[in-house]
Structure formats: structure tokens, C-alpha cells
Amino acid sequence: MLKGDRLAVARLISMIEDDAPQARAILSAIYPHTGRAHIVGITGPAGSGKSTITQELIREYRKRGLTVGVVAIDPSSSITGGAILGDRIRMLRMQSDPGVFIRSMATRGNLGGLTKSTRDVVRVLDASGKDVVIIETVGVGQDEVDIAKTAQTIVLVNMPGMGDDVQTIKAGILEIADILVINKADMPGVEELANNLRQMLSLSKPSPGGWKVPIKKTIATTGEGISELVDEIQKHKEYLYNSGEIANRAKSSIESEMILLLQEAVRNYGLIALQYPEVRDLIAKVVNRELEPRAAASTLLNFICSKLSSRS
């Protein structure tokens, strides 16, 4: 995988998605080889053209001699639980390029626009030598904030003609954007949307390092504006490193991930603890109104800690 072998990359990602026992050890081994790729998040409301923009970004990066990995997050199928593979189908012609690796992943019920294993999959693509890793989120709207804790440059895509522009912008989580894109800029209402965006940006809190969020216009179906968008992403990357903001974002990202992993571990230990008679008695006391749920949860946490302590 470290040599960029596509089959090895695909197999490792499948192991991560399946929570295979050996995946954790491999992730530990490759972690020192990560941190070289620039992570770009593409987010925004459904129907705004995120997939087409992602496809054109791949094309432009390859023109510039850079290798690209893509993690395309799709909604889970209510029937099979798998991903709706529209993104991979649309980008299929890019897959034959050895400098491109695209993986479509199902949310599997996760909120926030990403999947539980997104960060680990990004690390695999990073360690395999990709210069740029693009994460295209599912497009769920206001809940879609996980990308802010994962990507280094966040591109928020909007389009005119989606009804109430201000409400659309709100649902598009304007607060986390590093670059704003108005896609389908050949449609009516572009300038009105651009003015609304500028007004909302004027009310936003300034970036710590002085980055001013630009508004770029694209027509992704023709490739218009994509080269300029890549230039803007590069400018933001340079700003991150020149200002030192890259270190702050990395720290925030790791803190967020560790909290999520800790929550998952506590939840798993809690499920195991339900087998103990003491915990079943605790639940019975809550059911019988003898104990308040918060107090019971605190007791359960102490119980879990005592069990872990006795193991060590």
C-alpha cells in the first residue's frame, strides 16, 4: 500500500470498513507515513453539483501532475445498507488513471455527512502517496459539520434557484467554509446569491489568520471556473502553512477524533457491562423510580472504570 499498489489500498480500505481485527495494527503502522496530502472537503446542499465539481477537480489536478484520492460519501441504501454508487459511476472514467483512486462509502446511519471510518480511509490514501485527497460529503445540510474537523480546506458549494437563498446558505453551513462556490453560474439569480453570500460573510467572525473567504463561480458541467478554484485551494493551503493555522486545525481535528473514539469505547464497554447483575439491578432501580438516570449513568461509569482498572 505504501508503494501505491491499488489492490492493496482497496483491500485495506475494505478491512477498515469491515472493522477487521488486523486493520487497527496496520493503521498504527502506516500512521507515521501520513500528513503529506492536502485534504480538501467538498460540501453543500444536495443537488448543488458537488460530484461534478469533484470530477472536474480530479481532471484539473491531474493536468497539473498531482495524484488524487477521493472519498465520496453516499447515503446508505434502506434495502441493502450499502452505498448509492452514483458518485463512482459518474467518475468511472477517471478510475483507469493510475494517479487516481476513488472510493464510494455508505454513511451507514452516521450523521454529520461523513462515515465512521472516513478519517482512517483518508489516512490510507495519504500514506499511499496521493498529493490531494478530496472528501465529498453526502450533502445532508446543517448537520454536516464533521468535514470541518477532517478536511484542511473546505469548499462549500451552492447554486442559484434553490428557493430561499438565505435559508439555503444557512442549511449549507456557511460558518465552516474556507472557499464559497456558486456552481451552475449560467443560471438566473447568480448575482443575487453572490450578494447574499457577501452580506452574510460580512457578519461572520474573521478567520484567526486573516483569511478572507472568496466567492468563486463555476459551471462544472463545462469545466468553467475549475482551474481558478484549484488556484484558490492552493492559496488557502499556503495561507494555512504560512500563518501556522495548519497546526491549530490538526490539533482540533485530533482532539475531536479522540473524543469520538473515547465515546465509542465507553459505549462498547457499557454494552458489555449490561451483562453484569449489578448493572441490571441498576437499570431496575431507574425503572422503579428509585434512582435518577444521570445518577445511574455516573454509577455505571464508575463500575466500568473499576472493571478496567482490575484488568490492568
Results as ranks from 00 to 15, higher is better:
residue 134 I to T: 04
residue 163 G to Y: 09
residue 147 I to M: 07
residue 200 M to N: 07
residue 138 V to L: 11
residue 164 D to H: 08
residue 115 T to C: 15
residue 138 V to S: 11
residue 174 L to V: 10
residue 202 S to H: 09
residue 188 P to V: 01
residue 169 I to D: 12
residue 134 I to R: 13
residue 193 L to T: 07
residue 123 R to L: 01
residue 156 L to V: 15
residue 176 I to N: 09
residue 146 D to V: 01
residue 135 I to L: 09
residue 122 V to T: 00
residue 186 D to G: 05
residue 172 G to V: 03
residue 169 I to T: 01
residue 145 V to I: 10
residue 154 I to E: 09
residue 183 N to H: 13
residue 117 S to T: 10
residue 121 V to N: 05
residue 165 D to M: 06
residue 112 G to P: 01
residue 199 Q to A: 14
residue 160 P to F: 00
residue 152 Q to G: 12
residue 195 N to L: 11
residue 182 I to H: 13
residue 148 A to E: 14
residue 118 T to Q: 09
residue 198 R to P: 00
residue 156 L to H: 03
residue 129 G to K: 00
residue 184 K to M: 08
residue 177 A to Y: 10
residue 115 T to M: 13
residue 182 I to C: 15
residue 119 R to A: 09
residue 138 V to M: 11
residue 170 K to M: 10
residue 185 A to Q: 05
residue 173 I to Q: 06
residue 200 M to A: 12
residue 150 T to F: 09
residue 135 I to N: 03
residue 202 S to L: 15
residue 132 V to R: 11
residue 167 Q to W: 06
residue 188 P to S: 05
residue 150 T to D: 05
residue 175 E to G: 14
residue 184 K to Q: 08
residue 177 A to Q: 14
residue 152 Q to N: 08
residue 189 G to K: 07
residue 141 G to K: 05
residue 139 G to Q: 05
residue 124 V to W: 01
residue 200 M to E: 11
residue 183 N to C: 08
residue 171 A to K: 08
residue 130 K to W: 04
residue 129 G to A: 09
residue 134 I to S: 08
residue 160 P to N: 09
residue 143 D to C: 06
residue 162 M to G: 06
residue 163 G to L: 12
